[in-house]
Simulated assay, not measured.
Amino acid sequence: MFAQQLVNALTLGSVYALFALGFTLIFGVLGVINLSHGAIFMLGSYIALLLVNHFQMSLWLAMLLAMLACGTLGVIADFLVLRPLRKRNAPHLAPMIATIGVAIMLTNISQGIFGAENQRFPLGTIPEDSFSLGNLHLTAVQLAIVLISFALMLVLLTVMRKTQLGRALRAIAESPKAAYLLGINVEALFFFTSFAAAALGGAAGVLVGLSFNAISPFMGQPMLHKGIAVIILGGMGDIRGAMLGGLFLGFAEVMSVAYLSSDFRDAIAFGLLFLILLVRPAGMFGKILERKA
C-alpha cells in the first residue's frame, strides 16, 4: 500500500515540478511572477486534445506540437505585454497585474471555444498497458509521465549548468544591465526564456490531462496556486528547489488522501508548506537576491 502511494506521489509530484520549473525560470531570468502560466498550462491540454481529435495525430506528436504552440504563445505574450513594461521600467506589480489580465482573457476564450464542461481524450488515445511487481501497480501513463517530466527537468538543468546559453541566462538573472554590457543579447534571451517556460507549462498541461483524463478551462487556476507554493517552498528562482518542492507537494497530497481524508488534501499540504517556511523562510535552496547594475 505504501509503495503504491509512493508511485502515485512521484507521478503527481513530477507534474507539479515540471509546471513549477517554467514558473521559476520566468522569475529567475525576467524577475516576473507570470500569473498567466496556469492559463498556458490549460491551453497545452486543449491543443493536444484538438490535434488528437480533429487531426488524428499520435498522442506524443500532439504533445510536442502543443509544447511548441504554448512556447510561441509565451513569446507573443512577452512581446505584447511584458516587453513594453520592461522598456518603461514599470514597477514589479505591473507585470503581475498584466499577466492576470492575460490569464483571464485566455481562460474566457477557451471557455467560449471549448465550453465549460470537462472534456476527455478519446478512447484508445491513452495507453492502457500496466506493469505489476508484487503488490505494486504501475500504468503506462504513470511511467510516461514520470519519464517525460524527469527528462525535461534534466535537459533544463543541464542547459542551465553546462552550456554557454545557461551561463548567459544566469548572468541575466544576476544583472540584466551587466549582462548587456558584456555583449549578451538580453532581449533575445528574455524571449527564449518565455518560450521555454511556456513550453514546459504546456507539457505539464498535457501530462495532467493524461493523468486525470479531464480537461477544463478552469484547470489552470488550481495548478497556478500549486506552482506558486512550489517555487516558494523550493526557493524563488532556483531550479533544484522547484523540482524538490514539486515532489514534496505531490507526496504530501497523496499521503494525506491515502491515510487521512481527501477533504483535507490541500489543507495538510499547504499546512506543511507553512511549517517549513516558518523554519526556512527563503525556501530550501532560496536566498535573498539583490539585483545590481
Results as ranks from 00 to 15, higher is better:
G134S: 08
L200K: 05
W60Y: 15
E174M: 06
F121L: 08
F285E: 05
G22F: 07
L138D: 09
A173Q: 00
V206L: 09
L12S: 10
R265P: 08
A90D: 09
L65A: 11
L156A: 01
M42N: 05
M57H: 13
A252V: 06
P95D: 04
L275F: 06
M236K: 02
P176S: 05
V141N: 06
E128H: 11
F79V: 14
A144G: 06
H92A: 14
M105N: 14
S14G: 04
A66D: 07
M153Y: 00
N34L: 03
E128I: 13
Y46P: 05
Y259W: 06
A242N: 00
S45V: 11
A204W: 02
V141A: 08
A94Y: 12
W60I: 14
I126F: 08
L275R: 00
L247H: 04
A98F: 09
T24M: 03
P176W: 05
M153E: 02
F41W: 09
I228F: 15
A9W: 02
I276S: 00
A199D: 06
L43H: 04
A168I: 02
G166H: 01
L200D: 02
L207M: 14
R88F: 03
S132E: 15
L260W: 11
S149L: 03
N53V: 14
A62R: 06
S175R: 01
A39C: 07
S149A: 07
P84I: 02
K87Y: 08
L260I: 15
W60L: 15
S45Q: 13
